[in-house]
Each structure stands twice: as structure tokens, then as C-alpha cells.
Design a protein around this nucleic acid. Structure first.
Lengths: 232, 232
DNA sequence: GGGCCTATCAAACAGGTGTTTCAATCGCGT
DNA sequence: ACGCGATTGAAACACCTGTTTGATAGGCCC
């Protein structure tokens, strides 16, 4: 019942090697793009295949045909977002690889905040990640493994260089503190908008907030006696 | 169509003044309790009336009868959670009213973290609030006005006493930084669980994390030159 | 041109949702 | 005991969800 032939969905993904740029480029990619936006806006459960297909100008059966499943579509959207993010990142990241740790932290926070804040068109990548972090979906493991963990370890490396006296648990908790400071502007945006009506979160303000978070965290990390727990 | 008589739901809410403790105490309150838990766990859209009624041991029509609507039930659950939280709080808060600001911050963070972390039975209040903060539902305005804003202003008062040289915007951003550090352990719990398998978030660890956040923030707030933006 | 695979379409399907309906039951005042 | 309102019960309603179906074109190679 659930798996009749399983051929069409796989066929589109495997055998269309040379058609991937002519015929497939139309619906399949348009579907990925629309799905990313809808998933980022509404969340996995709340997003409907019908709206995705409507935005992509495709038929309702297109998702079933090209991806076979809503869950599979979601996973491939995550992977697609990942590919897009990866080819946008390494330039900036490599450039700051050699600079001093404080500058690296500043760049890390600024990049994070910019990705979160931008409401612009092709910016559902970060929103999707944040959404997936908040409510675990089908692709959480994949997102964590290849998206979140690398960033987190990069941040932890920066922290260790900033203050070599920090224990491993302290490094982890400082990383959580920094990421948490950034994420609240995404997770609690509606609340913050009501609390602080003057909040606008445009480019200038995002840069200011990133600078605040950077200095806030630099001051804190510089303190050696952050302890309280085990030093592991 | 949508509103036939509207009598039964209102009748239960208004005319049952003296029955509110005998007959109503059974289903209505049991419904509120179950709904709070389900709403906190699954979120508004994902929570089903059938599961709420099943947990409350009530019929499917009970919600429609006692509250008339799923949205109305949700709003009353928020109000109910608020009532419960208010009668649990002022004791602790008043006790620390006179102590020094650093101790007040420590108490604030610890209370916040305990409420967030506890998975225990009657602890869906904070989880509900956090859930509502992340995804704005029907009762967001009410939650912010009477639930979040007072806490936030209390925190800002503490910060002003900690460092009187802070500008107003800086106070706001420091408050966001502190709340953000706490909230990540709730919003991103599944991710953190995968990133740090050793994380257990029991009472002892929550106390340690609260202590970390407190010291982290105290070090940062103590720095005078946090600027970067306007001083407003 | 004739088959054959790929892609799209409208329509329908099974399942789950919030809500309503109407009969049956309970509790209590008279 | 009776009657009446408040409350509960099982079934049905209309709607929306993801998924499947069978038909219909379109391109491509032999």
C-alpha cells in the first residue's frame, strides 16, 4: 500500500543525470525553493504541500513525484539549504582564520546575527535551521551533525584561545551563552517587538546588537573564575 | 452557522457562580490542567482536542461545552497558568527585594532556569510561556503584558543597580542577553541534547548552569564601556 | 512513425481535525 | 415524585491534510 512501485520518485533523483539542468531545473528546483520558504515560515507540521506547490506553480502530485514524501522533501530542503550556506560561508570564515580570537568572535557573532535577522528573499536558510532547532523535526540529526556542530566547535575553538584556563564544561557553557544571546532575537522576536516597540532589527541595529553581544561575551570569557561546576 | 445559540458555553462560564466549586471543579478544571500540559508539550496547532479530553477523562464535546472554542480554551489556559504562577512567585521575589543586586540577579536566573528545566508534573506554566514566546499564538499580547513585561522590568531594574552608568538601550540589550542565555536551554533542548550527550539538566546541573550564567553576566555587566550603539 | 520513459494534471482517496447535534443522564429544588 | 436545567455521551458533520491514481501530453531513440 504505502510503497507500490517507488520508481518515479527515485527515477527523478537518480537517472536524470543529464536532464537535471534542462527539464528538472524547472519544477524540482522551484519546488525546493518554495518548500524552503514555506517550511521556514510555517514550520514542518504546519506547512502544507498544497501551498508549497501553489507557490512553485506546480501540481499537488509534483511533490510525491519528485520526492516521494513530505518528509523526504523536507530533508532534501535542509540539504539544499546547507549547500547554499556552505558556498556562501568559507570565504568569510577562511579570511578570519588567522586573525586574533577576539576578532574571530566578533565575525562569528556578526555573521550569525545577520543570517538570523535578514528577512530578505533567499534567506530562509538560517530561519529554517533555527526553526528546526526549536522544534525537532525529521531532519534534526542531519541538521545538527552537518550544520550546527561544526559552527559550535568553531566557536568553542575560539573560546579556548580566548581563555585557555577555561575547563571543557565552561567552554561548552560559554558557547551556549553566546549562541543563546543571538538566538533570542530570532526565537522571541514577536515578544521583543511588543516589549521594545523601538526595535527595528535593520542592518544598522543588527550590527549594534552583534557588537553588544561580542563585548558582553568578551568581558565574561576573559574572567578566569567562571567555575561553579565540574572542570571535566 | 458558526454561532447557533452560544448559550451553553457562556452559561458554564457565567451563571455557575456557586457551582464553580462543586460540579464544575470536576471536568472544567481537569480540562484546564490537561490542556495546559498538552499545549505546552505539542504547541497550540499541534495539540488536539481529542488528546486533551482523553487526558482529562472527558468527552470530546466537553471543550465545546465548557469553553466553546479551542482558541478560547487556550486563552483561559494561559490565564490559568498565570494565576498559578502568580501565587507561587511573590514570596521568593519579595524576600530578595532588599538584598544586593548581584544576589537578586542570581536568584532571578536560578528561578528562571528552574522553571524552564523542570519537566515535573505541574510545571507546564513556564513551558507554555516559552512556547507562546517562540510561536505567537492568540494570547501573545496577554502573555507579554501581564507575564513577560513585569519580569523583564524587574531584571532591568537589577541591571541598572548593578551598573548605573549603563544607557537605557544597553540595559535592554543586557536583559536580552541574560534571558537569551537561559532560554536557549529550553528552545534548543533537542539540539543541545545531541551536541552534548552528557547534558542531563537535572536539579544539580541546572543550578550549575544558572551559576554560570550569573557569573558570566555579572562580569559582562560590570564593564562600563559596553556601548556601540546610541545611548538614548 | 511507434514504442517508451518522463513529467504534469485533475480527481479522488483515507485519515485526522475542530465542531455540532441530539438523546441520555445527573443533581437538586419544589 | 416530578420537572427542569446543567452536564455528559456517542455519533456525525464539514473541512483539510498527505498521498495515490489513471489519464494525458511531450521528448527521444530505434
Amino acid at each position: 500500500m504505502s510503497r507500490t512501485a517507488a520508481a518515479p520518485a527515485r527515477a527523478a533523483g537518480k537517472t536524470s543525470a543529464r536532464v537535471a539542468e534542462s527539464a528538472d531545473h524547472g519544477t524540482r528546483e522551484r519546488l525546493l525553493d518554495a518548500a524552503g520558504e514555506v517550511f521556514a515560515d510555517r514550520g514542518y507540521e504546519q506547512a502544507t504541500i498544497r501551498e508549497i506547490c501553489r507557490r512553485a506553480g506546480a501540481n499537488i502530485a509534483a511533490v510525491s513525484y519528485h520526492f516521494g514524501d513530505k518528509k523526504t522533501l523536507y530533508i532534501e530542503v535542509i540539504a539544499f539549504a546547507h549547500r547554499c550556506a556552505d558556498e556562501y560561508d568559507p570565504a568569510r570564515e577562511a579570511a578570519n582564520a588567522a586573525s586574533d580570537p577576539a576578532e574571530r568572535l566578533r565575525a562569528f557573532v556578526l555573521t550569525f546575527m545577520q543570517r538570523i535577522g535578514h528577512k530578505g528573499r533567499p534567506a530562509w536558510h538560517a530561519r529554517l535551521m533555527a526553526r528546526e532547532m526549536a522544534s525537532p523535526g525529521a531532519a534534526l540529526d542531519h541538521v545538527v551533525r552537518s550544520g550546527v556542530r561544526p559552527k559550535f566547535e568553531a566557536l568553542q575553538a575560539i573560546l579556548r584561545r580566548l581563555n585557555p584556563r577555561l575547563g571543557e564544561r565552561q567552554v561548552e557553557r560559554c558557547a551556549c551563552s553566546i549562541v543563546g544571546q543571538c538566538l533570542i532575537y530570532h526565537h522571541a522576536r514577536p515578544v521583543l517587538a511588543r516589549l521594545f516597540p523601538h526595535l527595528r532589527l535593520d542592518d544598522r541595529e543588527i550590527a549594534q546588537i552583534a557588537e553588544h553581544i561580542t563585548r558582553f561575551s568578551l568581558s565574561a570569557v576573559a574572567q578566569a573564575h567562571l567555575g561553579g561546576g565540574d572542570r571535566s
